[in-house]
């Protein structure tokens, strides 16, 4: 499965456009992480716990999107976008969406 966030794929031609595929997830970090982030907030710098939260969210949302694409019989997803929202304190939503296509090498 080729995944890109461009509308075309270099060296490939899009043969069939199958439509929108999407995946989302809402994840929360346990309280310990939030407390650790609170301490880190006193001196500033990277909040590793929250970065992990976002990475985990992406690793969950992307396969959901790809599974949908697979079901449609696609071999690539183009023009992938991410969108996020904070649902409640300590939780974040990550939404990945793209267009499932069938591509052939040019």
């Amino acid at each position: 499965m080729i995944v890109t966030n461009t509308e075309t794929i270099s060296d490939y031609t899009i043969q069939e456009t199958l439509g929108l595929v999407q995946g989302n997830t809402v994840r929360a970090k346990h309280v310990g992480r939030d407390i650790a982030a609170g301490f880190k907030n006193s001196v500033g710098g990277e909040l590793k716990g929250y970065i992990e939260l976002l990475t985990e969210s992406r690793r969950e949302a992307m396969p959901r999107m790809l599974a949908q694409a697979q079901q449609l019989g696609a071999n690539a997803v183009v023009n992938v976008r991410f969108s996020t929202s904070s649902i409640t304190s300590g939780a974040s939503e990550l939404y990945a969406y793209g267009t499932a296509v069938v591509v052939n090498p040019a």
Binding site: N5, T8, Y12, E46, L47, T55, R58, F82
Partner: peptide, 29 residues
């Protein structure tokens, strides 16, 4: 750009890369 400037044909197909960053401020800030 969406158009792959200078793409070399016949190489491995393109792929998406992602990165997340969270930076906190400090008390003085």
């Amino acid at each position: 750009l969406k158009t792959y400037p200078g793409a070399v044909p016949g190489q491995r197909s393109p792929t998406m890369v992602c990165a997340e960053v969270v930076i906190a401020s400090d008390y003085l800030k």
